[in-house]
């Protein structure tokens, strides 16, 4: 039995502790917004927050999470739209097929929590998720917009290198 705190809810799950968190989220809890892309922490489609930090859940044993807070795309904002990253993503029409976007959004939200006004270099270093449709240009622009929306630290134009 694994005990997890997912999106603020305590879940008791009857799965082998070695089961990657990704599959516990998708198949045991039914939260399918977190995606499978590679299974080897390469693509980032499975990105969730562990205590606020972007983490690739496909390679993280669920049993190792302990009491840490797990946040998935479903728990990023109450309505699925109002996190500054989601607002900026809609404004810039970032998604194409959309499959990688949960991971991109979670990675971006974590980056902004750590660096409220990231430079292009920060973004290039921190956002390593694969998008086969090639939305990277809009991902970058939307992160700058989200930084401005989120408020005062960087200012509206803050941080763009």
């Amino acid at each position: 039995m694994i005990k997890l705190n997912v999106n603020g809810q305590i879940r008791e799950i009857d799965a082998d502790p070695d089961t990657p968190l990704l599959w516990v989220l998708r198949e045991w809890i039914g939260l399918t917004g977190t995606k499978y892309g590679c299974g080897v922490a390469q693509c980032g489609a499975c990105t969730v927050h562990i205590d606020g930090v972007a983490t690739r859940s496909c390679s993280l044993p669920a049993g190792s999470v302990g009491a840490a807070r797990v946040t998935t795309i479903e728990g990023l904002s109450s309505d699925g739209l109002s996190h500054p990253v989601q607002v900026a993503w809609l404004q810039h029409e970032v998604p194409q097929c959309g499959y990688c976007q949960s991971g991109q959004i979670m990675a971006a939200a974590s980056l902004l929590a750590e660096k409220p006004s990231p430079t292009d270099t920060d973004i290039a270093e921190m956002i390593t998720n694969i998008c086969r449709c090639g939305t990277y240009q809009r991902v970058k622009e939307a992160i700058h917009t989200a930084a401005a929306l989120a408020g005062p630290v960087g200012g509206p134009s803050g941080g763009k290198s």
Partner: peptide, 16 residues
């Protein structure tokens, strides 16, 4: 677009 921002779009892989 909206469903792609919240994780709610059900791709074939997500079907339950």
């Amino acid at each position: 677009t909206v469903e792609k921002l919240s994780g709610k779009l059900v791709y074939a892989i997500d079907l339950q």
